[in-house]
Design a protein around this nucleic acid. Structure first.
Length: 437
RNA sequence: GCCAGGGUGGUGUAGCCUGGUUAGCACAGGGGACUGUGGAUCCCCUAGCCCGGGUUCAAAUCCCGGCCCUGGCCCCA
């Protein structure tokens, strides 16, 4: 009988080298989040499917890892964290001092076809700021978004800011009833050639004037001071004017945060259309890997009410780690992890007394904070040195009967090959010094 | 859900088109040559045709289905 045990489609195993690199990225991001006074939360990996249904409608269920559990519950693995965090807030934190500032670094699951930068299990690092509808909150979150990427060493990226209110107004201006369809189309503008885009707009049902307007809208893309005046020209209504002045204030505040360099306006981005209500944004880092957005977010002022809470404004973002990490790798920004001990202790021969001294020595080294390992396979000395050499271990401690009789052991510098006899009691001191600890 | 291209020891590959030796090679792993001195050399060992069905005297090879991988579409909360 042979059993086949394979990974489930769209999932991955992470080996030590990759884990070390991932953890390095996670830590950089975590540090910035905490500096901005966001605090970590973690919710269950699965929720009632109704939670996601309530937010996004029945269609999303086919994108969910959904199943019926043994108790007959209709549950789904979380496709992102925002729903769970909003649920947690509604359950227990509606009376907490505002704003509530939470962050998470966790795995998410979506039942989709795997492709470049897309897996069925993936990780996101994100924040949610709940309880302020002020533009200051948007600015704080977007500034942190920028700083999160900077903390990983990434500099070549932009954060493009769009606005759902303006897109809605725009659809109204054009007299389009299927505003979601229009937004989907506009969101694809960068994937299509200009001709195909125009063709698609006409097929959608726009007349020449409508097409012209859409083209002027997607032109509103670039540095804020250059393109926001164009937006003022395009939009007439009062609601749009208010939203545009919100954007003006936002970019002004982002200037105070010192992150203007990375900020662009792009009124053609929609970032989906489920629950965003105002400012939306996404980060793009040019690369040859076919990876587009490396993260995004926006304001969602209705979700908490939809979940049965008091109407509460909120804003947040999520960084897609499976997209960010390859880009960082591609730019050579992640340090090579050290995947070896600093000291390797080799007992020579099979005598128990020798093996015990080896264990005592490695234990003393470990207690002194040295990353130390001990030979465990009973290999002969030659092979053991070979092993240490391949690993790149800088120092080896050799313990044999001959040295032991004089109360000593041998410390070998693997690089130079130099060896010297050291008193057993002095070996920790000697090695911590050699390692500069 | 749809489309294209793939799948040979742990890794990388040859063989496939044109069916026919014991499926070859390299690296990695274990052991030995060498019972106290490393990355070399030599020898030995471990280990593979994704799964199932079909065609055939004969299938890694041809056909069908499935699974998985890579990428694209849809969707992207």
């Amino acid at each position: 009988m042979e059993m086949r045990l394979e990974r489930v489609k769209g999932t991955r195993d992470f080996l030590p080298e990759e884990m070390a690199k991932r953890r390095w990225v996670f830590e950089r991001v975590r540090e910035v989040f905490e500096r901005y006074n966001f605090r970590e939360v973690l919710t269950p990996a699965f929720e009632y499917t109704d939670l996601f249904r309530l937010r996004s409608g029945e269609e999303v269920v086919k994108e969910l890892y959904a199943f019926i559990d043994k108790g007959g519950r209709d549950v789904s693995l979380r496709p992102d964290m925002t729903s769970s965090v909003a649920r947690l807030y509604v359950n227990r934190f509606q009376n907490a001092p505002k704003p509530v500032k939470w962050y998470y670094i966790a795995n998410m699951f979506r039942y989709e076809e795997p492709q470049s930068g897309r897996f069925r299990e993936f990780w996101q690092a994100g924040v949610e700021l709940i309880g302020s509808d002020k533009v200051e909150a948007d600015a704080e979150v977007i500034a942190l978004f920028v700083q999160s990427y900077l903390a990983t060493g990434l500099e070549g990226f932009t954060v493009n800011i769009g606005d759902r209110v303006l897109l809605d107004e725009f659809a109204k201006m054009l007299g389009v009833s299927d505003d979601i369809g229009l937004m989907r189309l506009i969101d694809k503008k960068d994937k299509l050639s200009r001709e195909d885009f125009i063709k698609a707009l006409k097929e959608f049902g726009l007349n020449d004037e409508g097409v012209e307007k859409v083209l002027s809208l997607v032109e509103i893309k670039g540095k804020p001071d250059e393109v926001l005046p164009m937006a003022e020209e395009l939009f007439g209504s009062g609601e749009a004017k208010d939203e545009i002045s919100r954007l003006y204030e936002l970019v002004d505040l982002l200037d105070a945060y010192g992150v203007s360099k990375w900020i662009r306006i792009d009124l053609g981005i929609a970032r989906g259309f489920d629950y965003y209500t105002s400012i939306v944004f996404e980060a793009i880092a040019p690369n040859d890997l076919g990876i587009g957005s490396i993260g995004g977010g926006g304001r969602y002022d209705n979700l908490i009410e939809v979940f049965g809470g008091k109407p509460t404004p909120a804003t947040g973002f999520a960084i897609g780690l499976e997209r960010l990490i390859p880009v960082l790798e591609w730019r050579g920004l992640i340090p090579e992890p050290k995947l070896r001990p600093d000291v390797y202790v080799i007992p020579i021969g099979r005598e128990r007394a020798v093996k015990k001294v080896a264990i005592e020595v490695v234990t003393a080294l470990r207690e002194a904070g040295v990353e130390a390992d001990v030979e465990l396979t009973g290999r002969k000395l030659g092979k053991a040195l070979d092993y240490a050499g391949r690993l790149g271990v800088p120092f080896v401690v050799l313990i044999g009967k001959r040295d032991l009789e004089g109360g000593r052991l041998t410390v070998r510098d693997m690089e130079s090959g130099e060896q010297r006899a050291v008193e057993i009691e002095r070996v920790v001191e000697e090695l911590t010094e050699l390692l500069g600890l």
